[in-house]
Amino acid sequence: MTTTPHYVIIGSGSAGFGAAKTLRTGDADCRITMVTMDSLPFYNRYNLPQVFHGRHDWRDLMDVPPAQYAELGIELRRRSRVVDVDGAQRFVSLAHQEHVAYDRLLVCAGGRGYLPENLTEYFGLMHGFGSFEAAMRLHKDLPKGGTAIMIGGDMTGIDLAMTLLETGYNVTLITTSQTFWPHRVTTQERDRLLAALEAAGMKVLKDTRAVGVSRENSGKPAACVTLEDGTEVRGDVVMPFCGLASSVEFMLRADVDIERGLLVTPELHTSNETIWAAGDVCQIWHDQEKAYKFFHGWKNVRVMGELAARNMLGANEIFDVNIEDRIDVDADGKISSTFWIH
């Protein structure tokens, strides 16, 4: 007896959604279930800074209308947290005690903002930017013309920072080793880039480190970051942008190899026969560098999702790890990055 295969996709970001569409194109009959922590159906995360240009209705950020999920036959499980994956019995356990059996699993759970160890206890006092909700909260809590203090300043953060500056806010950047993540920049390049940011109106604090965050309920601005020399920096919100940490806790019993992310072959196949991974959650084997590497950025992630889906359907394609990793400042001081190419 043959039955149509059930593909389960964990994550509804661009990798997950791209994969779902690819699966449907390749197999009109298969069953596709997409499990996501998000309460929204797929939207373009990289457009979140647009919130500060006035796009406050989440429907504006939708890539496809909700009805398209039904048309594509994608079963959506939103606000559903995966707590465990049983790689031997092939099912996904959700926090609400439901087991979803799969024939093939694609993990594109992405990552969550990384927070320097010494600041973890201040987590509750900071703003994130990982979801539409977080973006809207930020928009709500940041008064018009107010100041956002950024710790780190990875490429997602820089993108937001540029938008904030354009829309009349102030940004104070406290640099860390993760500034410009995931680009690796030399000291020279770094200085040039920081100079470009300062020229764009950003206040940049170099050679120091944030050691504490506090909030005051009365009097503005409300947030305060303490630096290691004891000085205090004031602003309205504090946001860590120190790169991503992969979300893999739920994969610990899945019978797959994990370092910081899920380890996959260039075909995006994990060490488990029926599990693939794509996007920020996986480290792909780089044969020249002899190491598992992360490949971040909108374009990469999307390519990975579609490629993994084709391989799940039986293809044997390889992810091209030789991709350009470039960040530049042009004559006008405008920063361009391969990370931002959509």
Binding site: S39, Y69, A70, L76, R78, R79, H96, Q97, E98, V100
Partner: peptide, 27 residues
């Protein structure tokens, strides 16, 4: 709905499996 149940439910037995993409789930 309750997104943290006690008893195991069959696949599709949780309401989150039945919420249309245009509806908003709050667990």
């Amino acid at each position: 709905y309750d997104d943290n149940l006690v008893a195991r439910v069959a696949e599709g037995g949780h309401i989150s499996a039945h919420i249309d993409a245009a509806q908003i789930p709050y667990g």
